[in-house]
Write a protein that binds this DNA or RNA. Structure first.
Length: 590
RNA sequence: UGGGACGUCGCCAAGUCGGUAAGGCACGGGAUUUUGAUUCCCGCAUUCGAAGGUUCGAGUCCUUCCGUCCCAGCCA
């Protein structure tokens, strides 16, 4: 048997081979499949195109697309675009790009608005069977009639209109005869229900605005609860996965589906077919799981939008943003995000994942995938006094310490080098095993040096360091085996290239920036040092050929990525993805 | 006595028909190391929100209580 390309690719094949720990939703699917309740699963990721996707959405994306891939099912990307005015084509394009970046391919791209004509027919059906009515109450009045959490609501005075009157009024709503907000179509359920979603919820409202996908075809738009379950059914969705806050909506989800009964009334869906779209009709089941939260991260769409609009960050793709385009630009590998989704599991427990879990997954991926290079962020000149002034040679440096297949590169070496300023201390603290006057240290790939002098400026600051290279300790020589307590990274002064390097840190200083119970807001918790721009970094010359989005480990410093938008060969710009794990700084700061 | 959901180690999270607490991350200790990185060992819940009860035996069953989250958009 030969491997044929999957007829319904939902994934690019780069995801993790193991589906990870089992969870209740996967178990439901396994059971459904085993019982023969369905032959194939069909999921969907249904974003509203009113903002950018963030790391929280990644959990849902990975769950929906991942499950479909795992069980050779299907997964659609559906824009839940039932509220024009808040939605924009800019967001739909960005969302598509983010889903692809995460490594997924949708089976079909749909819009809830593709089904507006069908929805309209479904609403008419509800009216005909006496389960929906046109209500003339305005928004304030509806609120008053709704009651409270502990008190039942009251029936609308328009609740018992005749079917004929309702049909006529609804048609006129569609025709644009009434002003925005003047009337709504409501479900006739139970104003005394303990579940407020069942107190005659709105089905359609009047909004005379242009829609990003349907233009000016409509002036009435369906509400989420009505549109979502029907969209699922029309697309043949088997498992409709959503977050916990929709648990209360499930009775309504089921109510609409049961009353409208699309499966046994397929002509309702004729308009979809007429558009050339398939409508495999199913009786989907909604299953809720807890959303992903990360500490020190803000994931509220509204506040993220405010950060952008108020210029607190440099746009949706600022490397400090938790948006998918932000973490992409920051250099996080998509595989690390997928792995996060895989490892955290799927439950109904509200949880907050420590940010370090994500960060360590990024390190785990990059340790294996990123080639090593040397760069000095805060250069101080080091002169090897026992080398000739014109000494120049090329050393060989392995690109990866654990993967010989990644080969090696040549690095320039000469009498004058740059090392990291913080790798030298005139008065060393306890436990410091880097360079000190009279002390020895290894220069990575080069050999062991001994510092013999500190040259200072008039103001007392250090101008340069003098050292001698132990020629017998050079790379490849027997003396290279000699142990010294520290190894430093460096670049050759004559050949290094200048670069801008941006050092990012968390955007917020508190674990829950969204918490305003102490009277403060997320704005009060912005980290003033969330970005530090280093303009005089020195890179080894080989980095001159780096291309945008290429990632490296700068030895001993961390992982860095060439900026997706601003990096240029003649003007390198690198973003720090994350630092290396560091068991020294913590000790040093004691 | 409004409705819905959830409470297993610092953070996640497994725990089939009740049979005597997986794993990951974090953390502590040690080994290796030309990155104080990586890797590798070892350790880390007599206890499952609490209290009763059923049982030879309960995280798993029953009762009560406590705590947390969600819902009163013509948002999704």
């Amino acid at each position: 048997m030969t491997d044929a390309a999957s007829p319904n690719p939902v994934h690019d094949g780069t995801s993790n081979p193991s589906p990870g720990p089992n969870h209740f939703i996967r178990q439901i699917i396994i059971d459904d499949l085993a019982r023969g309740r369905l032959a194939q699963i069909h999921t969907r990721f249904p974003p509203e195109p009113n903002g950018y996707l963030h790391i929280g959405h990644a959990k849902s994306i990975c769950l929906n697309f991942g499950l479909a891939a795992e069980f050779t099912g299907l997964c659609n990307l559906r824009f839940d675009d039932t509220n024009p005015g808040k939605e924009d084509i800019e967001f739909v394009e960005a969302i598509k790009e983010d889903v692809r970046w995460l490594g997924y391919q949708w089976s079909e791209l749909r819009h809830a608005s593709d089904y507006f004509e069908s929805f309209y027919r479904c609403a008419e059906k509800l009216i005909r069977v006496g389960l929906a009515y046109v209500c003339d109450l305005d928004a304030d009045a509806v609120r008053n009639y709704r009651g409270t959490l502990t008190e039942a609501g009251r029936n609308s005075p328009f609740r018992e209109r005749t079917v004929e009157e309702n049909l006529d009024l609804f048609a006129r709503m569609r025709a644009g005869e009434f002003a925005d907000g003047a009337r709504t179509l409501r479900a006739h359920i139970d104003m005394a229900s303990g579940n407020i979603n069942l107190r005659d919820p709105a089905i359609y409202r009047i909004r005379k605005v242009t829609h990003q996908h349907t233009g000016s075809d409509w002036c009435i738009y369906p509400m989420y609860d009505f549109a979502h379950c029907l969209s699922d059914a029309i697309e043949g969705i088997s498992h409709s996965l959503c977050t916990l806050e929709f648990e209360d909506h499930r009775p309504l989800y089921d109510w609409y589906l049961d009353k409208i009964d699309l499966v046994n009334d397929p002509q309702l869906v004729a308009p979809v077919l007429q558009k050339g779209l398939t409508a495999p009709l199913s009786r989907p089941r909604q299953i809720e799981f807890s959303r992903l939260n990360l500490d020190y991260v803000l994931l509220s769409k509204r506040k993220l939008l405010a950060l952008v609009n108020d210029r607190l960050v440099d746009g949706w793709n600022d490397p400090r943003m938790p948006t998918l385009c932000g973490i992409r630009r920051r250099g996080y590998p998509a595989a690390a995000v997928r792995e996060l989704a895989r490892r955290i599991g799927v439950t109904k427990q509200e949880s907050v994942i420590e940010y370090s879990v994500l960060e360590n997954l990024v390190r785990e991926d990059l340790d294996a995938s990123a080639e090593r290079r040397m760069a000095v962020l805060d250069p101080i000149k080091l002169v090897l006094t026992n080398l000739a002034a014109d000494h120049h040679e090329l050393l060989v440096a392995a690109n990866h310490p654990k993967d010989a297949s990644r080969g090696s590169r040549q690095i320039a070496f000469g009498r004058e080098l740059y090392i990291e300023r913080e790798d030298f201390m005139e008065v060393p603290v306890k436990g410091f095993h880097r360079l000190v006057v009279g002390g020895e240290v290894r220069l990575r790939f080069a050999g062991i040096i001994r510092c013999i002098a500190v040259v200072k400026h008039d103001d007392g600051t250090i101008a340069e360091l003098h050292a001698t290279l132990d020629l017998a300790s050079r790379h490849g020589m027997p003396g290279a085996e000699r142990k010294v307590k520290g190894t430093l990274h460096w670049v050759c002064a004559a050949h290094a290239i200048a670069a801008e390097v941006r050092l990012y840190d968390r955007l917020f200083t508190v674990p829950d920036p969204d918490d305003e119970r102490d009277g403060k807001s997320y704005r009060d918790h912005l980290n003033p040092d969330s970005v530090r721009v280093v303009t005089k970094a020195k890179l080894e010359a080989s980095l001159g050929t780096a291309v945008a989005e290429q990632r490296f480990q700068f030895e001993r410093l961390g992982y860095f990525v060439a900026d997706r938008y601003q990096h240029q060969p003649n003007r390198p710009v690198f973003n720090r993805i994350c630092s290396l794990r560091d068991s020294w700084t913590a000790v040093a700061k004691g």
